[in-house]
Design a protein around this nucleic acid. Sequence first.
RNA 1: GGGGUGCUAGCUCAGUAGGUAGAGCAGCUGACUUUUAAUCAGCCGGUCACAGGUUCAAUUCCUGUGCACCCCA
Length: 496
Amino acid sequence: MSEQVDQIALRRNKLAQLRQGGKPFPNDFRRDAYAGDLQNQYADTEFSENQVPIHVKVSGRLMTRRLMGKASFTHIQDSTGQIQLFLQKDQLGESIYDEFKNFDIGDILGAEGDLFRTRTGELSIRVKNIRLLTKALRPLPEKYHGLTDPEIRYRQRYLDLLMNDTTRSVFLTRAAIIQHIREFMISHRYLEVETPMMHPIPGGAVARPFITHHNTLNMDLYLRVAPELYLKKLVVGGFERVFEINRNFRNEGISTRHNPEFTMMEFYCAYADYHDFIDLTEELVKSLCQKVIGREQLNYQGQEIDFSGKFECYDMLQSILRFNPDISRKDLHDERAIRELANHLQIQVGSTDGIGKIQMEIFEKKVEQKLINPTFITGYPVEVSPLSRRNDKQPDISDRFEFFIAGREIANGFSELNDAEDQAERFQEQVNKKDAGDHEAMHFDADYICALEHGLPPTAGEGIGIDRLVMILTDSPSIRDVVLFPHLRHQQPPAE
RNA sequence: GGGGUGCUAGCUCAGUAGGUAGAGCAGCUGACUUUUAAUCAGCCGGUCACAGGUUCAAUUCCUGUGCACCCCA
């Protein structure tokens, strides 16, 4: 008889035998303890022969095993951690012990027995009974080096989560961050809402949308690029403080900082302005550092970032001059000079772009990446802020800020434009730009104008990029490390 | 869009100045009742990403394609 060599085939044979024995996938085992909880609870406990034994039932995945004739050690892993099992032939009986020897790494099992400490001091369970609950047909990656291939880590994230502690920890931290943000907002009297993901007109941000189609209505719909306009309609409707944590979709490039779908929190507060939101953002980010991460100094990819003390805040044009002493204030305000400057800096400028847009481009290229410690930038041109309120003193500047950490834009907020007629004019400007060939310009959203005409109270609004914030707080170099299933190209079958 | 790097066993990686490939772990057989990268003995396991080209001979050199990662725009 030829020897079985394929690990998967061997496991399938074992499953086939289980099927013959009936009930190959039982679901009647109930645990009463978790590995990690036991490790914490009994960290300092000594166990002696004459005390009443502590009996526990655990379940999880078989990760390692060391078979030594009539006794064996294995580790099983559940959602909280690992615990060692000690199995002896004379304790378990020959048939169960032989069954156990037939288990494979990766199998899911349930075990019960008494807690004890081995000679080397490791908390373990002296197993009295053990059962296979799910047969794993494929082997796990190697136990020592784990799984490092980034492609498999992303495509088969479950393997990454099983094998890599740091991956598990990043996503646990992500969940804790989002929970903390949600509680923070609720405690500030914000109402959590859900607004449409499918929009008849894409709006609320400058970005290329994904297009889909509704068959019954026979109409194209756009996956939302931002929830902004709907959230402000809710403020019109009297929900004076609202927030939404959810996905936005932008049909643009994929990189270490961009996934086509990404998570944003947007929130709006009536009778507040952008200064209030600068303060709120600082309070939120600081509380995340203190309560979730436990530190106010973080290292992000080798850079020290200091979240203690008052966050810096200054004006966009100031910041350009501050980081680029060779640029003069005069040049930034002169149409001909600034175009020349942009050209010199190898910035592509469109024919419809005004001074404000070019200033913004220069800022993005020459300043953004240098804003390492948490920094608010204000004074954005109205030209690049079609939904923001005009500044009372400088009508070409908007009441807007952006927030940066580690050279990355984390948040964007402003006092909302609640003048319906001004908003209609600005939409019209966007439409004119679109007609002139600017594909990024916004549509005219008459529905939104109608809502504004009913009266939007003076309101502040903001969006915070959750993925980028999580990247910084977990020291993750790529957005793919903080999104469970990042988008990758299809794996295509090999050519014929 | 441009440039760079990678793709070899289930996993982690060597290697071939062109002559069909190795290790560790995993797996299989056996020994072993306190191991923990268990140990010891023996064994199995490969379309060297894919397609062309050069060559007596290509996993290796060249070209293209795919996927991934990094950098730039």
